[in-house]
Amino acid sequence: MMFGYELSFLWAGLIAFAVLTYVVLDGFDLGIGILFPFYPNEKHRDVMMNSVAPVWDGNETWLVLGGGGLMAVFPLAYAVVMPALYMPIILMLLALVFRGVSFEFRWKTTRWRGVWDIAFFGGSLIAALSQGIALGALVQGIEVENRAYAGGWWDWLTPFSLMTGVAVATGYALLGATWIIMKTEGTVADRMRRHALQLGAATLVFIGIVSLWTPFQDRVYFERWFTGATWYWSVIVPVLMAAAAFVLWRGIAYRHDVTPFLASLSIFVLSFVGIGVSFYPMIVPPSLTIVEAAAPESSLRFALVGALILIPIILIYTAYSYWVFRGKIDPDEGYH
């Protein structure tokens, strides 16, 4: 029999899984939007958008699970983080509106296609920047008093959070570029290989800066990484990161289809692990722990039954849906 204590850690893991799944899945389709201005050819844009058309709303559902799940099992964290990140969250929501509808609207008009292309690019970029800024603001820490956010409306805006914003947008563009390498052939894929190399380098530089900057945001982070019993993470994570970077470079250089995408995914997973190492056992640094923020045991237990049964089923049919649309996009194939 599990008690609330263990349940809350299990749930922290599940929420982290949902957020990570969101980041890597919506990451590549947001990334494709970010890359739009570099591919002005209509045909290329059609192919890029079509490569994610059947899956984008499934990808975005993980964001809803992250939000709804957080309210269900860590209501206090949800109630503190959302007001603290008010502006980046609202910006992200509005940006997602623009890019979400452009999947449909762009095909419905000629005169306004340019408008929806801009909406797709702008929405994707602003959503990515907002998510990165939100992440940076969370890492910096959120002031909590009496179960409520106690800071100001512009606290989220700092050089650090702006930098994490650009870092996440760059990383998403890398995911998008390697996804396109996997899903297309010909001119688009060739240009994407070049872009993926540049984006890969830029992403790694950003990861390096964030990794060196983060420990100075909070004494706890510093001790976590450089002193005490957990120092070994400081070896494992960077070594694996270097390996992922090598696989990425090699995959692009040797014109592999799939490995660049998988290597980019690994870079995201490792970065996420790094953040988890910094945060634990906090859910909202610097003062709100996983246990403090957790909902009562009856909520955790009831929701867990559903999550443990349904998430595997969801993963199975989501994988099936990806499998149905597997392989290279044929620009001339009709689905109807």
């Binding site: 699970l65 799940g69 309210m71 209501p75 206090l76 909902a295 929701a303 999550a307």
Partner: peptide, 15 residues
């Protein structure tokens, strides 16, 4: 209300 309503909304997402 999160402890009561949140799980129902999580079930909506999941199911």
């Amino acid at each position: 209300t999160g402890p009561v309503l949140g799980p129902l909304m999580a079930y909506e997402v999941l199911t």
